[in-house]
Design a protein around this nucleic acid. Structure first.
Lengths: 229, 229
DNA sequence: TGTCAGCTGTCAGTCGCTGACATTAGCTTG
DNA sequence: CAAGCTAATGTCAGCGACTGACAGCTGACA
C-alpha cells in the first residue's frame, strides 16, 4: 500500500484498458440511442451504429448480445434501482405499499442516474420508439416479467412465504406490474415527457388499483370522469 | 341454384384452390409444431419446416409473417374465443366477474377447437417451449398485451366509459392479465398438463386476486398454506 | 523490456426475411 | 372445351442480424 491506486477508502481507479472499454461502450450506447431516436429501430442497422463510433461490427456484438440490448441499456439501470429500493423498505410495511413506495421514492434517483449517462430527452424519445416498435415492446415486456419474478421473490421473503407454494406474491406483483405498464403507456402517449408528469401519472394509476378492482364501477362516485382531453 | 355448391342453408364449399391453401397451411403448422416441440425453437430452421411439407421457403413466408407466427397459430384461436366470450356476457355483471367467467366458461370450447387442429399433447409441449424460449416468450407477452388492449375497450364500452380518459378499465384488465399469466406459468411448470388441471389452477389464482391485494397477508387466515409440494 | 493475456478487426458462413420475376395451376367466360 | 385471367408457387438474388475462427495489436505485469 501507499501507491495511489491501492489507497483504501477511494474506489481504485480502473486501468487504461478498463477505461477504454467503458468509453467504447458508452459511445456505442449514445450513438445507438441517437440513431434509434431519429431513424427508428428498424431503420437503424448495426453497421450504422458501429460506423458512427468507428469500431467493427464484431466489437458491437462483443459488448451487446444483440441490437435490442443496446436499446435497453438505460432502462436496466432503472430496474436494478427499483429492486434495491424494494429490498430497502422497512419490514412492517404491507406488500402493496412496499412496491408503491419503492417505485415512487426511487424515482428521482433514477432520473438523476439516467441523465448522467444520456440526455433525459434522448431517453424519452427512445422510450417512445420502444413502445411503438413491436420487436422492442416484446423484449421490454419480457424483461419486465423477469423483474417481476425477482420482485415476487423479495416480497415472498419479506412475508416468510414460499413463492412456489403461495401464488399471492406473484399475483400481487403481476397486478402491480400491469398497472405500472398502463402508467408507462399513458405517459409515453401524452405530450408532457417530464419526470414530474410521469410521477403524477404513476401516482394516479396506483391510486386507482383499489377502485378498479371494486365490484361495480357504476355505483359510487366515478373519479377522473372527463377530467382529461 | 340447385347445384350442390350453391345450395342455401349449408356453408358453400370453398373451391379447390381454397382447400389446397388450407391443407398447406395446416401441414405447415403441424410440421412446425412437431419440430419445435422436439428440437426446440432455435433448433428448428424454416428450411426444416418447409422440407417436411415439401414447399419452398418463400411459400412459408407467404402464409406466416415470420417463424414466430406459426408457433402462435393455435394460441390465437384461444384468444379470439375469450374475446368473443367477454362480448357475450350479460351487461349487468361486474367487470372483474365478466373476465373471470369469460375465461372459465370458454375453456372447454377452446380445448375442443384446439384438438381439432393439432393433438392437445403437442400443443402442451409447444406451450412449454414458448415459456422457456426468450424470443417466443417475448412475442407471447406482446400478443397478450394487445389482447388486453382490446379487452379494455370492450369493458370500457360495457360500462360506458372512455378508455383513454378513465384508467380503470386498462388497470383492471392489466391486473387480470397478470394473474392469468401467473396461472399459465404455474401450469406449464407443473406435471399435470390436462385442461382440467389448468382450469383448477386458473380458478385458484383468480380466487386469490382479492386476498393478494389486501393490505396485510400476515393478519387473517392464510389460504393455501402448505397445500402444495 | 519482453512476455502474456485480453481486446479488436477481418473473413466466412448461417439463418431469418424480402422483392422481383418467371412458372404453374385453378377459375371463368365465350 | 379452349382461351385468358388471376392467384399461388418456385427460383434467385440480396440484406441484415448474428457467430465462430483466426490473426494482429495493445495494455498489463514481472
Amino acid at each position: 500500500m501507499g501507491t495511489a491506486e491501492s489507497a483504501v477508502g477511494a474506489p481504485p481507479r480502473p486501468g487504461l484498458r478498463e477505461r477504454k472499454k467503458q468509453r467504447t461502450r458508452d459511445a456505442l450506447v449514445r450513438a445507438a440511442l441517437e440513431l434509434i431516436a431519429t431513424r427508428g429501430y428498424e431503420g437503424t442497422t448495426v453497421d450504422d451504429i458501429v460506423a458512427a463510433v468507428d469500431v467493427s461490427q464484431r466489437t458491437f456484438f462483443r459488448y451487446f448480445a444483440g441490437k435490442e440490448e443496446v436499446a435497453f441499456f438505460v432502462a436496466r439501470l432503472a430496474e436494478s434501482r427499483v429492486l434495491d429500493a424494494v429490498r430497502a423498505r422497512p419490514p412492517h410495511e404491507a406488500p402493496l405499499e412496499v412496491l408503491r413506495r419503492a417505485v415512487l421514492d426511487s424515482w428521482d434517483g433514477i432520473t438523476e442516474a439516467v441523465e448522467q449517462l444520456v440526455p433525459l430527452d434522448l431517453h424519452m424519445r427512445v422510450y417512445r420508439v420502444i413502445e411503438s416498435t413491436p420487436a422492442l415492446l416484446a423484449a421490454h415486456l419480457r424483461r419486465a416479467t423477469e423483474l417481476e419474478e425477482e420482485l415476487a421473490r423479495v416480497i415472498a421473503d419479506r412475508e416468510g412465504l414460499d413463492v412456489d407454494a403461495d401464488p399471492r406474491p406473484r399475483i400481487l406483483v403481476a397486478a402491480f406490474g400491469g398497472v405500472v405498464r398502463v402508467a408507462e403507456r399513458r405517459w409515453s402517449a401524452g405530450d408532457d415527457c417530464s419526470p414530474e408528469a410521469m410521477r403524477a401519472v404513476m401516482t394516479a394509476c396506483l391510486d386507482q388499483v383499489g377502485p378498479a378492482l371494486a365490484g361495480n364501477w357504476r355505483t359510487g362516485p366515478s373519479p377522473n370522469r372527463g377530467t382529461e382531453t
